[in-house]
Nucleic acid binder design. Structure first.
Lengths: 156, 156
DNA sequence: TCTTGACCTTCCCATGATGGGAAGCTCCAC
DNA sequence: GTGGAGCTTCCCATCATGGGAAGGTCAAGA
């Protein structure tokens, strides 16, 4: 099987297959006399594994860990579960972050006329004109930050 | 005000301030005789605007659009609202995508012993051994794809 | 046999937003 | 005048992926 067929069979682009080889995620493939890479069913299986892991949001680094665990027949499932739960926590953190953005934006968009007039609470918020009623807590972000780690003379 | 003070006042790193100038998001600053950039209150206000927009997930490109609208006193709020609602839709799409991942991962993690034994449904899923009960629809992903846009001989 | 064109190879570049760090200047306080 | 904080520019790295050029290879059809 050439790289094109392996790509079709696995759903991973030829470009990516070469890249995965380059970074050591998969072993260098054997070559035919014409210098073409040769793939077998096992390699395709590995590529599908990678694709599935990526589709679940695992980074290539995490994918590499999972791949090694998969190939290590004496692994402990606890190790796999640990990688998965850490990833779940990361996803949930990012989801919560984006949901916060959505909440704020929906509120602002709701308050915005969306008409021909220039008056716009969305821009007012971005500009820091927090003339919003009491809801400004929802527009979170900007953690207070202890003001300055800088050791400067700070004319301020 | 030097760049360091502007950074402190706006919460945008000096590195980023220079970058924003380089890509044309903000105008090139005036320089003092020693070639230092000089900032005033207005520039800091712009930087804060950018920071706020970024914290709500807007890309730099969207931020640039919003910035121009902000500075265009004859804007129509509809234009602003359009940018915001498109961004909300994008965020919601990405949230849904990640929630799908979380759902699948939680199911798999729940089914995984997480002990010293090698047996692991998480790896089984990644490997494509969908010995999962009926729930395989939730493990979605991989849109069917019309098989192949390739015009090849495809030994298949 | 020659041509065509689909396929393969390597190499370089681009993305988006940010940080790190080097080399060399300026400025200020002591 | 010296030390060090701060400024300047320039280059590189991240993460995963795609685009494209230049050139070699193979197979099918004229």
């Amino acid at each position: 099987m050439n790289i094109g067929q392996a790509s079709d069979a696995s759903g991973v682009s030829a470009k990516m297959i070469r890249y995965y080889e380059e970074i050591g995620l998969i072993r260098p493939m054997g070559r035919t006399g014409n210098n073409y890479r040769v793939y077998g069913e096992e390699e395709v299986h590995v590529l599908r594994f990678i694709k599935r892991a990526r589709s679940l949001g695992f980074s290539l680094e995490e994918t590499e860990t999972l791949l090694k665990l998969w190939q290590d027949k004496s692994r402990e499932s606890a190790a796999v579960k640990e990688v998965a739960t850490a990833h779940i926590a990361d996803l949930e953190r990012r989801i919560a972050e984006m949901q916060g953005m959505v909440k704020t934006l929906k509120h602002l968009a709701h308050c915005c006329g969306g008409d021909h007039r220039p008056n716009c609470p969305i821009l007012d918020d971005l500009a820091g004109d927090s003339s919003a009623p009491g809801d400004s807590s929802a527009s979170g972000g900007d953690a207070p930050l202890p003001a300055s780690r800088r050791k400067t003379k700070k004319v301020a």
